[in-house]
């Protein structure tokens, strides 16, 4: 899983999308000294007059973006996912409360970030932004989907948070299939009726790997790229609940409050079907290579397979 030469990192897709958005003169880009990492640097090269360096000062960046949005601009502000969290109150009170169209991108999210260690591995961002009223929360799985979903942000009303990942992964989409992506609509990547694996980000690839493994044992999985954590595609979940009767969530994020949390909230208030969660179990990460860390924390296709078997067992024994 560690950085294959083919494919792309979702942060690359974000960078490409900004260039595609440049035709709209309202689009402006804000950076906090991490443009080379978040990939907003490509926009800066082409459109320096519409790119604003805010220095290592994320709180200021968020409110500058808000001020710009109040003046008719559509700001895209990016830094590391973890550093957006420093400005959580700014995002809540300064951007989301007045409903301003500011699009925040937090790159290098999750344990997948690797050797930088636990301080850089945001595992709570999806959770905290999901609690903010009317905030769209997106976590794409590869570069092509990140690009497509970022471009679509121009069409939504209100603020958004998108988490991208640092490392390249195998692509889940191609130039044709990416056109089917839509914010708020989960993408079905595999169809099967025994269990539905709902994944986001880099864990989508692991979910598909798990589905292949399970297929060898005759277990048929549906795999969904739930790139939009909020608003959650509950329509699709309702269909899958009937079809599969049990769920697994898979995310490079705490099991508390993220995609698994969102699923859990929906299931406990709507359905009586089992859910098994694959995610970070209330612990911080540490330094290490991406693959070994993901293994250490339990973010593997094997963990998804086990969770799927458990979920199916619970379904059958109920």
């Amino acid at each position: 899983m560690s950085a294959p030469s083919i494919g792309g990192a979702s942060r690359d897709g974000y960078g490409k999308a900004l260039l595609r958005l440049s035709d709209d003169p309202r689009v402006v880009v804000l950076e906090a000294d991490l443009g080379k990492s978040t990939k907003s640097c490509h926009f800066r090269e082409e459109f320096p007059e519409r790119t604003f360096s805010m220095g290592i000062a994320e709180q200021n960046m968020m409110l500058v973006a808000a001020g710009m949005a109040s003046s008719g601009k559509v700001p895209f502000a990016s830094t590391f996912a973890i550093f957006t969290e420093r400005a959580f109150e700014q995002v809540r009170n300064g951007i989301a409360r007045p409903g301003l169209n500011v699009h925040i991108c937090g790159s290098h999210g999750g344990i997948h970030t690797g050797t930088d260690g636990s301080s850089a591995q945001s595992i709570e961002d999806l959770s905290i932004y999901r609690t903010i009223p009317k905030m769209t929360v997106i976590h794409p799985c590869d570069d092509l989907s990140a690009e497509e979903l970022t471009v679509q942000l121009l069409g939504i009303s209100g603020p958004s948070y998108m988490r991208t990942a640092r490392n390249k992964v195998r692509r889940m989409y191609d130039d044709q299939s990416k056109l089917g992506l839509k914010i708020g609509v989960g993408s079905i990547l595999e169809e099967g009726s025994d269990v539905a694996i709902i994944a986001c980000g880099v864990m989508v690839e692991q979910a598909r790997n798990a589905a292949s493994t399970l297929a060898n044992d005759g277990i048929e999985c549906t795999v969904v790229d739930m790139h939009t954590i909020k608003p959650l595609d509950t329509e699709l979940l309702a269909i899958l609940s009937e079809r599969c009767g049990c769920f697994v969530s898979a995310e490079d994020h705490s099991v508390i409050g993220g995609l698994g949390g969102a699923l859990s909230e929906w299931i406990t208030t709507s359905k009586t079907v089992p859910l098994e969660m694959v995610g970070v179990r209330d612990r911080f990460g540490e330094s290490g290579g991406t693959s070994e860390l993901m293994e250490e924390v339990g973010l593997t296709s094997e963990a998804i397979c086990q969770a799927a078997r458990n979920s199916i067992n619970r379904k059958n024994s109920s």
Binding site: M61, M62, V64, A66, G67, M68, A69, S71, G94
Partner: peptide
């Protein structure tokens, strides 16, 4: 929330 207005004003000024 105190401390946010000057940044907002700067965003308005740049725009």
């Amino acid at each position: 929330s105190l401390g946010m207005g000057l940044s907002f004003g700067l965003g308005c000024a740049l725009s």
